[in-house]
């Protein structure tokens, strides 16, 4: 990118730009609507976006390795269905059913990883296939019927509060810190970047390329599974079509967050800021009286505009 002075670089870094955009958006939206900029609303927005948020974290890593995971929404649906079936039909205690369904989600993610690393199938093709397959398993196992009537205690995950904040806020913070640290401060993280920058070179440097990729796709499975559970707890029912379309939401956040879709570049902070920006726009525009169909038009324009602006600033910085 730009080889200019450090300070200018910092100012023009993608994350800084997103932070400024977020601040400006918050300011404008709070002027447009009185109810937008309240702690209650902002916390509530975190609750509503937590599922996509968790997936976005893992998707950031996947995309930095130069990969992609289109099966996230299907894995979320599968783990939600397994939770319901294991608890209601197989009679497992709910915590055990939850852990088992998370395990199944991790296995589904690892399955993607194996197809990608062992059989050298490009990630887009592999996860396009498993996207249909995992959704199909969810529909088949459940016979497309929903499971309802979970015990009240289970709803703490999706509707409850811990220390005065929605449970999801804590889960998201812990997950973001863990993933962020793993990416920026560990050998694992350095390998993730190395794979994305140049996989062949990474192999020649005897980095554990395949193992790291497996972990990354396994993590993506785990986060998808956890999102599935959070959604079940938030909406109190299980359906086999849960999580449809989440992959595009997560990918949008990651690329708006500055990750290169070709790998080698991206940050957790950028993805989180981008996600916050999108959710604020959705909520704020709605509160300002823009309808959902108009909102998605504006978000589309915003996505293109933000990247265009970023490119422009890169060029200015490069001068």
């Amino acid at each position: 990118m730009s080889p200019t002075s450090g300070r200018l670089n910092l100012l023009l870094s993608h994350e800084a730009m997103l932070a400024i955009l977020l601040a400006v958006t918050l300011l404008i939206l709070s002027l447009l609507s009185d109810s937008f900029f309240s702690t209650a609303n902002l916390l509530n927005q975190v609750r509503l976006t937590a599922e996509i948020g968790l997936i976005t974290l893992a998707m950031t890593l996947v995309i930095i390795t130069g990969g992609i995971d289109l099966s996230v929404g299907s894995i979320a649906g599968l783990s939600a269905i397994m939770l319901g079936l294991l608890w209601q039909k197989a009679g497992l205690p709910l915590p055990l059913a939850a852990v088992t369904s998370l395990g199944i989600a991790v296995l589904a993610g690892l399955g993607n990883g194996v197809i990608i690393t062992r059989f050298r199938v490009p990630p887009l093709i592999a996860t396009l296939a498993t996207m249909a397959f995992y959704r199909g398993l969810a529909e088949g196992f459940s016979q497309s019927r929903s499971v309802r009537g979970y015990p009240e205690g289970f709803y703490i995950l999706g509707q409850g509060e811990v220390l005065g904040l929605p449970t999801q806020v804590w889960i998201l913070i812990v997950a973001a810190v863990l993933v962020g640290t793993a990416l920026s401060a560990t050998a694992f993280g350095r390998t993730v970047f190395a794979i994305g920058a140049n996989e062949t070179a990474a192999r020649f440097s005897s980095l554990p390329v395949d193992r790291v990729k497996l972990i990354v796709y396994g993590l993506s499975g785990f986060m998808s599974g956890l999102s599935g559970l959070l959604l079940v707890s938030r909406v109190t029912t299980t359906r086999s079509d849960m999580g449809m379309g989440w992959e595009l939401d997560a990918i949008t956040a990651v690329v708006l967050g500055g990750a290169s879709i070709f790998g080698g570049r991206g940050t957790v902070l950028g993805s989180v800021l981008a996600l916050a920006l999108i959710q604020c726009l959705k909520s704020g525009l709605s509160l300002a009286g823009v309808k959902a169909d108009g909102t998605i038009v504006l978000i589309g324009l915003f996505l293109i505009g933000a990247v265009l602006l970023g490119n422009l600033m890169d060029r200015i910085a490069a001068r």
Partner: peptide, 8 residues
Amino acid sequence: YWLRAVIG
């Protein structure tokens, strides 16, 4: 019910 799984 198993259609999509078979296709996938």
